[in-house]
């Protein structure tokens, strides 16, 4: 089932002196149970696309469909039951414990005071276990590391119980092992919890290894394909290619082959003389 679909979507910003268009006529789709990565250079509009899909900003034209329904016609609470988000920086909520932070995800399902029912408690416990953060439940959030807090934020998104999860560079502040762990966790969640997960990231290496599909964003539009296809047909190189470097196609961990690194430094000094 399609958790997300766009029809002739144009994204950008409205300005009085003419709109700023970042991408137009996007027809994208996201199935439950798959992990999709958005890749692209800085400033190409990845975050704008993500914000538009998350209904945090209005599209310039076209439609976003959440679980088959036009997003523009949904109430905030109805959107909150269809998609959840994880942002780059985990918020600093000093005096809550991990459990309370994760339980905030039950907002769209609980009563006016946000009281938790038995099934809410079960959801929270399940989400904590799914991300491997059960031991953080009774610790103050302020005492946790960035990685631990981001884990809780993913658990919080899980308890919201939505078919679609959108993440905006969730690993930007984490060290390499934590980045690897996060991407693996996301892939596992798509399989075990049948979620559609869309992650905007700069982790080329990890995205190529763990995503089922990649959306490559460049000035000319969005190219969609599996990691293997994108590597073979050269679109990855077209998006990220820097003079003197190329991408490996053997599916190994070393995709990046930089010719300039092996050049002796003398040649640059020659230019100076």
């Amino acid at each position: 089932m399609k958790a997300l679909e766009t029809r002739a979507l144009t994204i950008g910003y409205r300005r009085r002196r003419g709109d700023i268009v970042l991408a137009r006529d996007l027809n994208l789709a996201l199935q439950r149970g798959s992990l999709v990565g958005i890749l692209g250079a800085n400033g190409v509009g990845k975050s704008t696309l993500l914000r538009t899909l998350a209904c945090m900003q209005a599209p310039l034209a076209g439609h976003v469909l959440l679980a088959g329904e036009e997003a523009a016609h949904l109430l905030p609470l109805e959107v909150a039951r269809r998609l959840c988000i994880v942002l780059t920086a985990a918020p600093q909520v000093s005096l809550l414990n991990g459990y309370a932070l994760v339980a905030l995800g039950r907002y769209p399902h609980s009563d006016w005071l946000g009281r938790l029912s038995k099934s809410d408690h079960a959801q929270v416990a399940w989400a904590l276990q799914a991300v491997g953060a059960t031991d953080l439940a009774e610790q103050r959030v302020a005492r946790l590391s960035d990685g631990q807090r981001q884990k809780l934020m993913i658990a919080r998104a899980l308890t919201q119980d939505c078919p679609l999860m959108l993440l905006d560079e969730p690993t930007a502040f984490l060290d390499y092992p934590r980045r690897l762990e996060t991407l693996r966790l996301l892939r596992r969640l798509t399989r075990q919890a049948d979620r559609a997960i869309l992650v905007c990231t700069h982790e080329l290496d990890l995205a190529l290894r763990y995503c089922d599909e990649l959306w490559l964003m460049s000035k000319s539009g969005v190219t969609v394909g599996s990691p293997a296809t994108i590597l073979r047909d050269g679109s990855l190189h077209a998006t990220f290619g820097i003079d003197g470097s190329s991408f490996g196609v053997n599916g190994g961990s070393r995709f990046f082959d930089d010719a300039q690194l092996s050049q002796p430094l003398e040649c640059q000094e020659d230019n100076l003389v």
Partner: peptide
């Protein structure tokens, strides 16, 4: 008192609160 639930969601950030369905 009627804003209590929304205030808890606002602890995260306005963006997160909106994504939780808080009518901002």
């Amino acid at each position: 008192a009627a804003q209590v639930k929304a205030l808890n969601a606002l602890l995260l950030s306005e963006d997160y609160a909106r994504s939780l369905g808080v009518p901002m």
